[in-house]
Amino acid sequence: MAKKITSVGALLLLALLALNEALATTVTTTVSTTTIDYEENQQCQKEIQTRSFSNCETFLRLEFDTSDATIMLPYPKKHYKNRCCKEELSGIDQQCVCYAVRSMMKNMMDSGRLSAEEMEEMLVLAGVLPIMCNIRKNPC
């Protein structure tokens, strides 16, 4: 009987040590991930702070809005997409493309150009913009 109790106690001790090790590893991983994310955001913010995404914004609005707004624009929708892809998104570091798209969408909402409902729908469209531009293989 004493051997069974000792074996069970030893197993419990091993399980607790393994759990303790797993928790310690998880905490360490979370901390370093948070640090990396913060540093990447700072890097991306610096990279895009002087950029304009006006062609990307126009293209997204044209993709989203199916009204007659295209009649008033000087160029066809394809022109805005090409300039968005080649001039506004292509020069951005690969790690910062999604940050740039989110920043652009935030600016559009902050400026009052989009309602909350439009923003939700357009976020999905904006997430695939880097795929449309052949910059990423996965949506943001």
Rank of each mutant, 00 (worst) to 15 (best):
Q49G: 00
P130T: 06
C44I: 06
L89G: 07
S32W: 08
K46L: 11
Y99C: 01
Q94I: 09
K137N: 11
N138E: 15
L114P: 02
S103K: 05
L123P: 00
E40L: 14
V97T: 12
L89R: 06
A69T: 09
C56R: 01
D37P: 00
M109T: 15
G112T: 06
E120W: 00
A69C: 09
S115D: 04
L14G: 09
E47H: 03
V101G: 02
M108N: 03
L129G: 01
E88Y: 04
S7D: 15
R61S: 05
M122W: 01
D68V: 05
C84K: 00
Q94R: 11
N107P: 00
C96M: 04
I71Y: 10
E21A: 15
T66Q: 15
T30S: 13
Q94P: 03
C133R: 07
S67W: 01
P76N: 13
K77H: 02
D37W: 04
C44M: 05
I48L: 00
P139E: 08
D37Q: 07
S7L: 14
M122Y: 07
A116S: 11
N41C: 05
G91V: 07
K3D: 15
A24F: 12
G127Y: 04
K78D: 13
P76K: 10
T25C: 01
P130A: 05
L62M: 14
E21L: 15
V31W: 07
A100Q: 05
C85K: 04
G127T: 01
C84H: 02
A18N: 02
C44V: 08
I71E: 13
S32N: 11
S7Q: 15
H79D: 08
T26C: 03
E121Q: 15
D110P: 01
L12W: 08
V8E: 10
V128P: 00
L11D: 08
A10S: 14
E57D: 05
V97K: 03
S32P: 00
K106G: 06
R61M: 14
R51P: 02
C98R: 00
L114G: 01
M105P: 00
Y38G: 05
N41D: 13
K77C: 03
C84Y: 04
T58M: 14
I131P: 06
E117Q: 12
N20A: 15
E63M: 10
L12A: 14
S103H: 11
M122G: 00
T50A: 12
L11T: 11
C98N: 03
Q45T: 11
F53R: 02
Y80H: 07
